[in-house]
């Protein structure tokens, strides 16, 4: 019905986005040039910190750590990467859109809660398997839940950061 006007609005937005990008480009470029050391460091720090975050997640049930802390470590790593590089690079490093991290995380957490309901137990009842699966000795639904938390924290923080940087 009012397609023309909508299209017009989109055009204007695109134009304004473009203008914003143009305005930011020199700044971004400058930032990259001045902190070459930092950006290189961030590139190498990223996998290290990610490994640390997974470790924190996995050991969280017994030692300090867990989904939140792991998620925050990973999110910090990606944020550092995003700040030292640019939003586009962070997107590439994340591989998936951060929104999907949220979706998958929520789905894992919700699914971990739902699973026991299939067995006739209340929502979020912990189920522990006896058989090891891959390198996890005791696969259990709280761990899946915590992984969901981990992904949601990453996704949430990165959504906010990348949106902010793209703005």
């Amino acid at each position: 019905m009012n397609d023309p006007s909508a299209r017009k609005e989109e055009d204007i937005m695109k134009a304004s986005d473009g203008a914003a990008a143009a305005a930011h480009a020199p700044v971004a470029g400058k930032a990259r040039a001045t902190s070459l050391v930092l950006s290189t460091a961030a590139t190498y720090l990223l996998p290290l910190l990610l490994f640390l975050s997974v470790y924190a997640l996995a050991r969280g049930h017994n030692l300090p750590g867990g989904g939140f802390i792991g998620g925050i470590i990973a999110a910090s790593a990606f944020s550092l990467f995003a700040i030292t590089h640019d939003a586009e690079a962070a997107h590439r490093a994340l591989r998936l859109h951060p929104r999907l991290y949220i979706v998958i995380g929520l789905f894992l957490a919700g699914g971990a809660g739902l699973a026991p309901m299939v067995a006739g137990k209340p929502f979020l009842t912990a189920l522990w398997a006896d058989a090891p699966f891959l390198f996890i000795q005791e696969p259990n639904t709280p761990l899946i839940f915590d992984t969901g938390v981990y992904l949601v924290v990453i996704g949430g923080v990165m959504t906010i950061f990348i949106s902010l940087m793209e703005d």
Partner: peptide, 12 residues
């Protein structure tokens, strides 16, 4: 749970 998973589907 119903709105939770519905919201999830909408997000997807």
């Amino acid at each position: 749970l119903i709105p939770f998973f519905t919201a999830l589907a909408c997000l997807a």
